[in-house]
């Protein structure tokens, strides 16, 4: 997540330490070491203070990562010692597991529908809000609030009710004489209720877009207006190009997060991913394999495939970015 900031920062850190190192060297030759040195060179204190993180990194991240890679080639079930089964888990996944295929399909649909819609809403509302209207703070808060609450179980419970047969949505539809289906328990609609829940949380990317829009100087719009550019022309030729880094940032972030969505599907389907696996998110399937059936070797293999998918999607995203993201301001 937060890739752009991270990438940019990595660059600036390089630059900074380079100059700091250069400074230190000149100071060394003039003999004024110590007082003016920017960083406190101290291997012992450095590692003492870094120790908690370093422990966590080894014990909770790198160690478990490697362990899960090894476990993915075994039939580990938590209770007995794991037996090496070679590529069996991966072979089964790719050739003989309909639920795996289904979960990929469900997750991909969710991501491909949810993320673009969410970002489109976020951008649209941000642009409307950016026109210097009164009450900006109020609207921004009102639109942002769902992002803060949306991941909770309470909202998933509410959603189950809102889209139920006698729920709020159907009540509203009945005013217009339409008899809605039972959205949650109909496999052809259930996934879309989750997409709607995701779109409902467009507030967070909207806030980021708003910050980006503030950074576009008014003079550009004024100059364009003087040259006779209309609203649409200004939108496509100024707003969008200057906002591409932020669109990209939001896109990378939301894609990575959406592949890992879990709670709403779990609550709305009662943990099953139903009806008929129509809301079987990838992580939900992983949870079932690992913690309901205790096929932990298989779950580890699923986790590594998820990592590879996310890495691949992110890499493609970065590769494509040079064709549409505009970094020179």
């Amino acid at each position: 997540m937060r890739l752009i900031v991270v990438a940019r920062e990595a660059g600036s850190i390089e630059g900074r330490t380079m100059t700091a190192a250069a400074q230190e060297r000149t100071q060394d030759t003039t003999g004024r070491v110590g007082v003016k040195r920017r960083r406190y060179r101290d291997n012992v204190w450095g590692y003492v203070l870094l120790l908690p993180w370093l422990l966590g990194f080894v014990l909770l991240t790198v160690g478990p990562m490697l362990a899960s890679l090894v476990l993915s080639f075994t039939d580990f079930d938590l209770l007995s010692a794991p037996n090496w089964v070679g590529l069996e888990n991966y072979v089964r996944m790719l050739t003989d597991d309909d639920r795996f295929t289904k979960s990929l399909q469900v997750t991909t649909t969710y991501v491909l529908l949810g993320v673009p819609l969410e970002l489109a809403f976020a951008l649209l509302v941000a642009i409307v809000l950016n026109r210097g209207l009164r009450g900006l703070d109020f609207y921004r808060s009102a639109f942002y609030l769902p992002s803060l609450l949306g991941g909770s179980v309470a909202i998933a419970v509410l959603w189950r009710q809102v889209f139920g047969r006698d729920g709020l949505v159907n009540d509203v539809l009945s005013v217009f004489g339409i008899e809605g289906p039972s959205w949650i328990s109909d496999p052809s609609y259930s996934l879309f209720t989750l997409v709607v829940l995701n779109v409902w949380q467009f507030g967070a990317p909207m806030v980021i877009f708003l910050a980006g829009l503030r950074g576009i100087p008014d003079e550009l719009y004024e100059a364009a207006a003087v040259d006779g550019a209309g609203v649409l022309r200004r939108f496509w030729s100024i707003t969008i190009p200057l906002l591409t880094p932020i669109i990209f940032f939001n896109l990378v972030l939301r894609l990575i997060n959406s592949f890992q969505a879990f709670t709403p599907a779990f609550i709305i389907s009662g943990g099953t991913g139903g009806p008929t696996d129509s809301t079987l998110f990838y992580t939900l399937y992983l949870y079932q394999e690992g913690f309901a059936y205790f096929r932990m070797g298989y779950a580890s293999a699923l986790a590594w495939i998820l990592l590879l998918i996310i890495a691949a999607v992110t890499a493609v995203n970065f590769a494509l970015s040079k064709y549409w993201v505009n970094y020179d301001r």
Binding site: V6, I13, F57, T61, P64, M65, F76, T283, A303
Partner: peptide, 24 residues
């Protein structure tokens, strides 16, 4: 700088990949 780069790398890591060994 090496550790810092590692630290940044963990920001992007989906936690599922450490889940099973952490649990056991």
């Amino acid at each position: 700088r090496f550790w810092f780069a590692m630290m940044l790398g963990t920001i992007m890591l989906p936690h599922h990949v450490t889940l099973i060994p952490q649990y056991s």
